[in-house]
Design a protein around this nucleic acid. Structure first.
Lengths: 145, 145
DNA sequence: TTCGTTGCAAAAGGTTTGCATACCA
DNA sequence: TGGTATGCAAACCTTTTGCAACGAA
């Protein structure tokens, strides 16, 4: 998954200061972040990147399968770089945003069998798990988003 | 789950023409509908209900657990009355919007075990399945939303 | 030099809110 | 009558787009 997905690849990919900055910021985020979060972080650290460019870069990463996307209750999109071995599902803490990947083989298999049984084709699935992590539970941290 | 959930219940619930109309329209919809769809339908059928009221009613139904909510690619929310025996997961056709409930016991159990294993509490899950139904596949209906 | 990329400003699209009015209980 | 519900318009938020200027190859 480094540099040669078969589909959805733009014909060219010009390397620019801005894209490098967005990628770096994304990689440095331990958890899911929004376009706004990234932009704010970039601005704070002196990298001058337009919000539009952040969105465009994220959209491209999404199309090429380099990031996982999850949706907030509000509809806001949160991004996280996708691990090399395919898509993952995450359990996200509603208070501090901590996320950890979970083993989802069970769900993957189930989704496949549903697809096979219903006559639907091209079945895709989105799964979002949220909860309160042990740390926040003991600290009573107020909800973040 | 008919009329006495323990939490999130508004202190009062005044019965009005508008709320009755929204509820009726929601019940009459075979599949998931957006606030806009409902409002358009209501307007077309002569019921005069403000879009704001449609939103407020849906939000209240969501809080009290009377509807299932699913999110469109765009972030738009789609609603559907929840069956009496608890929440459900649906497989929705990306072309015509046809939805059918799927047996999701497997997923429910898996989610419970993940909750137990991770130290997270109050774990909630959202699962969205989309595909192309047999009918649309043969008809080549263009994407609707 | 060429053509993809950037960034501002503005548009778009969906949802929420302020506030005066209407109406149920 | 009291307090909730309604509805219009405007505010809000996130994401996308038009377009002129910029810069990597």
């Amino acid at each position: 998954m480094d540099d040669s997905p078969t589909r959805g690849r733009p014909p060219s990919w010009r390397s620019t200061r801005q894209r490098a900055a967005v990628l770096r910021a994304l990689r440095d985020s331990p958890d899911f972040v929004s376009a706004n979060d990234l932009h704010a972080g970039l601005t704070a650290s002196g990298a001058n990147v337009g919000l539009t460019t952040v969105y465009r870069t994220l959209r491209m990463l999404e199309r090429t399968g380099h990031v996982d996307v999850v949706r907030e209750r509000t509809g806001e999109r949160l991004y996280r770089p996708r691990p090399a071995d395919g898509h993952r599902h995450y359990l996200v803490c509603r208070r501090c945003g901590l996320s950890r990947p979970v083993d989802s083989e069970t769900v993957e298999h189930w989704a496949d069998s549903v697809a096979a049984a219903t006559g639907f084709t091209e079945v895709e699935h989105t799964l979002e798990l949220t909860g309160v992590c042990g740390h926040c539970r003991s600290q009573s941290v107020p909800p973040q988003r």
